[in-house]
Amino acid sequence: MKRISIILCTAILFTACVSKKKYVALEQDNSELKSELTKTKVEKEELEAKFAAIEERVDDYNQKINSLTEDNNTKLVNVDGVVISENQKKALRESLKNVPPAYLATAKTLKDSMNLALQFNLKESMDTIEEDDDIAIKIEETVVMISISDKMLFNSGSYKISDKADAILQKIANVVNSEESLDIMVEGHTDNQTFKQNASIKDNWDLSVLRATSVVKKLQDKYGVAPEKLIAAGRSFYQPLVDNDTKENRATNRRTRIVILPNIDKFFALMNSNN
């Protein structure tokens, strides 16, 4: 009997020791969970504070946008991703009145109508320039490309402009000067033949650039085109129209290309200045 009592006491003590270890472990786990919970709460509060600040900034921006109105005529509207005022929108519609309605039939948006109107006006202006073997005109959407042979503009291997070019340059200047939102880029192109170098011209790069700048300066100095509307570029012989394998083909590749293109940013700035 005494032996049985001893065994029972030993078992109880052993069980108590195991339970105490488990309790300590559980207490540690509980402490870690509480710490993680506290950390999560802090992070959540920080995120909520940041989100509230962002919402406040968005509300502030929206209020500023909504306040950009003096009356109904200056209220901002979105036209195909471009924000303009009602007055600007009316001015754009006024500019469309001289365009035949049939020409605008394919337009789905106001922006489409603007592009078609500009294309129509450019085509009308180009009618004053006659095409021949030395002048080729191509119109793609709102961009006009005029290619002029070098024999009409320059002497062989030279960048001095011939008097024969006066008539065509005058007509091009008239087109550009008639619309303030148009820019003009002049590109010089050569064939691939080498020539005797001189103090001014080392290679075809030099020749193409100097020819482009000569035309640009002529348009500015003699025909009154604003210099900020002009761009000069040299292409050397790296964009040929045909292979440089015959005398005739090389003559085709020696050309000056004048690109007339709309400056949309300038167009909207002009609309704004007219309000």
Results as ranks from 00 to 15, higher is better:
110 L>V: 00
258 I>Q: 00
102 A>P: 06
29 D>E: 11
123 K>F: 01
234 G>S: 09
219 L>T: 02
200 S>F: 15
116 L>R: 00
271 M>E: 09
65 I>N: 12
164 K>E: 12
32 E>L: 11
156 S>A: 14
67 S>G: 09
275 N>E: 10
71 D>E: 10
42 V>A: 14
238 Y>R: 12
246 T>Q: 11
6 I>F: 09
26 L>F: 04
17 C>L: 12
204 N>L: 08
268 F>Q: 08
154 F>E: 00
236 S>H: 05
213 T>V: 15
25 A>D: 08
29 D>F: 06
65 I>Q: 14
91 A>H: 03
205 W>E: 12
151 K>Y: 04
7 I>T: 15
39 K>P: 13
105 A>C: 07
249 N>F: 03
206 D>N: 13
170 Q>M: 11
260 I>M: 04
200 S>H: 13
58 V>D: 15
32 E>M: 10
77 V>W: 02
71 D>C: 08
229 K>S: 05
33 L>C: 10
199 A>L: 15
90 K>S: 07
195 F>C: 08
69 T>N: 07
60 D>Y: 15
91 A>T: 03
113 S>E: 03
132 D>P: 01
102 A>K: 05
43 E>V: 08
238 Y>P: 13
170 Q>K: 10
190 T>Q: 04
108 K>I: 01
228 E>G: 14
86 E>W: 06
128 T>F: 05
189 H>Y: 13
246 T>F: 10
245 D>W: 03
176 V>C: 05
11 A>V: 08
153 L>S: 00
252 T>Q: 04
218 K>E: 09
160 K>A: 15
130 E>C: 09
64 K>V: 15
162 S>N: 14
117 A>Q: 00
32 E>H: 08
7 I>R: 15
116 L>F: 01
194 T>S: 11
250 R>V: 07
128 T>N: 08
188 G>C: 06
235 R>C: 15
130 E>T: 07
72 N>M: 15
173 A>P: 04
99 V>F: 01
252 T>I: 11
108 K>C: 02
142 T>G: 02
260 I>N: 00
153 L>M: 06
260 I>T: 02
119 Q>T: 01
121 N>M: 00
166 D>L: 09
152 M>G: 02
233 A>M: 13
250 R>Y: 05
71 D>Q: 07
7 I>K: 15
129 I>M: 01
195 F>R: 05
175 V>L: 06
187 E>C: 12
77 V>Q: 05
